[in-house]
């Protein structure tokens, strides 16, 4: 029998908690039953702290319903909390979405008054955004040109998104749900600056581009959005 030879569930304790490897060659039902049994056996007692669990699925794909059952089996009644569930496979559709969200879309045009330019992912605009024009992106916005209109980064709610421009004189900056507008007095605009959400002050701040190197380190990482999901 396969079950006898091979462990369906392998547990490994690390300093961060517990890692669960679920064998990917058996059926989901088998795995979940075995998992339920194992979890009951090894659950921490009342005096012990709650243990965080990383689940590694290998080459198994779980749909939403199965994911829910898995979570229930691990958490219910047991003193475990799920840190992450990782699978080595993704749906083609999700992969495309990830790709779209992590790509930089380069555009070469002027966004004039009344025009709206929207991209999924990061926007690299070579050209100006004129007063009355608007650019939006689900990721960051980089403008090699003059930003005089409205820029909205992280439209789907990513507050880590930022806006960088060679020349910054926007009528409004928007990041996720934050909005900031230009002062009522005439301002001259600034060169090579960026706008980002300062979580302590709970508002958008404009600062030199250099601050990005320590405030938004994750810009270098390709998978940053894949992990954010």
């Amino acid at each position: 029998m396969v079950q006898e030879k091979k462990q369906l569930i392998t547990m490994k304790g690390t300093k961060d908690g517990l890692t669960l490897f679920i064998e990917d060659s058996c059926s989901f039902e088998q795995a979940i039953q075995e998992l339920g049994r194992k979890m009951k056996e090894s659950r921490p007692t009342q005096h012990e702290p709650i243990v965080s669990v990383r689940v590694k699925l290998g080459h198994r794909y779980l749909n939403d319903e199965q994911l829910e059952r898995l979570k229930q089996t691990i958490c219910e009644e047991n003193r475990f909390t799920i840190h992450s569930i990782e699978s080595d496979v993704v749906l083609r559709e999700e992969a495309r979405l990830w790709q779209a969200n992590s790509e930089i879309k380069a555009m070469n045009r002027i966004v004039r008054s009344g025009q709206i330019l929207h991209v999924t992912g990061d926007l690299l605009l070579i050209g100006d955004v004129n007063p009355g024009g608007k650019v939006t992106a689900t990721g960051n916005i980089y403008i090699l040109g003059n930003l005089r209109g409205i820029a909205h980064a992280g439209v789907d709610g990513d507050i880590k998104a930022f806006i960088a421009a060679s020349f910054m004189n926007p009528s409004q900056l928007r990041i996720a749900d934050y909005i900031s507008r230009a002062p009522d007095y005439e301002s001259d605009g600034v060169y090579m600056e960026c706008g980002l959400v300062d979580e302590e002050k709970d508002k958008i701040i404009i600062d030199r581009l250099q601050v990005l190197s320590h405030k938004r380190k994750e810009i270098n990482r390709f998978e940053r959005r894949m992990q954010n999901g």
């Binding site: 004039r112 008054s113 009344g114 025009q115 004129n130 007063p131 009355g132 024009g133």
Partner: peptide, 16 residues
Amino acid sequence: EKSSVRDADRIIGLLE
């Protein structure tokens, strides 16, 4: 004037 330049910008966008 700003207002007139703004409208010209819109028009240029449409003409393009």
